[in-house]
Amino acid sequence: MPRVAFQGERGAYSEMAALQYFPKAKLVPCKSFADAFLAAEKKQVDYAVIPVENSIEGSVGEANDLLLQTRLKAVGEVYQRVRHCLIVNKGVKIGDVRRAHSHPQALGQCRQYLQKKKIEPMPAYDTAGAVKMVKEQGGKDAAIASRRAAELYGMKILQEEIEDRKSNYTRFLVLAPAKADKAKGQYKTSMIFSVKHVPGALFGILGEFAIRRLNLTKIESRPTKETPWEYNFYVDFEGHVDDKAVRQVMKIVKAKTSYLKVLGSYKKAEF
């Protein structure tokens, strides 16, 4: 039975994603993303399941910054459908609620709902953790989290599916100390690179993928945090590092970049 780390309390969407990928795993909740990464790096767990982007709010900044530093390899991915609930203590009515606590990503995904109800968003470190806190504090504040979190903590659901967009998914990467073996199926590869400061540098790199008909599924820039206005590029594309075309493009891209890190190749997940 694998041991799998996730960030947050029991009932968090990260726990749900981990259960979706590892139905029989022993799950290990961690206070922060850094703690989940460290548990896997020190082999206290076999895997860590980490959210990297949401279909509404975009990338999870802290998690992506940690990907730049970690020695872990990406060995899988999973999409978790996110259905947010407004959760309160028993006896509280919708008209009583003035504040709602949750992770900043969840608050952003429910922005229009909260504005319409005139409820003040209150950032917390975790969705399920917000439910636990609201229960412990009592009172008329609400939390935004999953139905599973409400059930685990014996709380009342005032409204379900309060997210602003119903096509709300979070994408998680499954990380491990060693890369996964290749098997049958469609694969994706994730990598991070920075370009040299010459005109057309990024265009020249992306063109190498186009020439070999390698489909890019994501490209995003994030600040290096070392030099102002310099960026790392996070790229996902279809293919495995052992494929001939991917080996060719990696060789060329390495020569054209000032920094290159391959996070790993893994089976492509489906919605």
Results as ranks from 00 to 15, higher is better:
residue 236 D to A: 05
residue 119 I to D: 00
residue 241 V to F: 00
residue 195 V to Y: 03
residue 151 E to P: 02
residue 213 R to G: 12
residue 99 R to A: 11
residue 65 D to R: 08
residue 251 K to M: 05
residue 21 Y to N: 04
residue 146 S to L: 05
residue 183 A to Q: 11
residue 153 Y to P: 11
residue 221 S to D: 13
residue 115 Q to R: 15
residue 198 V to T: 06
residue 120 E to W: 01
residue 50 I to W: 08
residue 32 S to T: 15
residue 110 C to A: 10
residue 253 V to Q: 04
residue 56 I to H: 10
residue 243 D to V: 05
residue 223 P to W: 03
residue 67 L to D: 06
residue 69 Q to I: 09
residue 36 A to W: 09
residue 227 T to K: 11
residue 265 S to P: 15
residue 226 E to R: 10
residue 68 L to T: 14
residue 186 Q to I: 12
residue 27 L to R: 02
residue 65 D to Y: 13
residue 197 H to L: 06
residue 258 S to W: 00
residue 133 M to S: 05
residue 207 G to F: 03
residue 48 A to S: 13
residue 34 A to G: 05
residue 225 K to P: 03
residue 30 C to E: 01
residue 204 G to E: 01
residue 95 G to W: 00
residue 41 E to K: 11
residue 83 R to C: 09
residue 266 Y to Q: 06
residue 219 I to C: 03
residue 93 K to M: 02
residue 78 V to K: 07
residue 259 Y to G: 06
residue 2 P to Y: 00
residue 197 H to Q: 09
residue 242 D to G: 12
residue 106 A to T: 13
residue 167 S to T: 14
residue 49 V to F: 09
residue 239 G to E: 11
residue 266 Y to R: 12
residue 233 F to K: 00
residue 96 D to C: 01
residue 35 D to Q: 12
residue 26 K to W: 04
residue 53 E to S: 14
residue 220 E to S: 07
residue 127 T to R: 02
residue 75 V to S: 06
residue 246 V to Q: 05
residue 105 Q to K: 10
residue 257 T to V: 03
residue 52 V to H: 13
residue 228 P to T: 01
residue 44 Q to F: 04
residue 194 S to C: 04
residue 258 S to I: 00
residue 119 I to G: 11
residue 220 E to D: 04
residue 91 G to T: 07
residue 164 D to T: 11
residue 62 E to L: 09
residue 253 V to S: 07
residue 98 R to I: 06
residue 135 K to R: 14
residue 120 E to K: 13
residue 250 M to P: 08
residue 53 E to I: 13
residue 150 A to W: 15
residue 102 S to H: 07
residue 166 K to F: 08
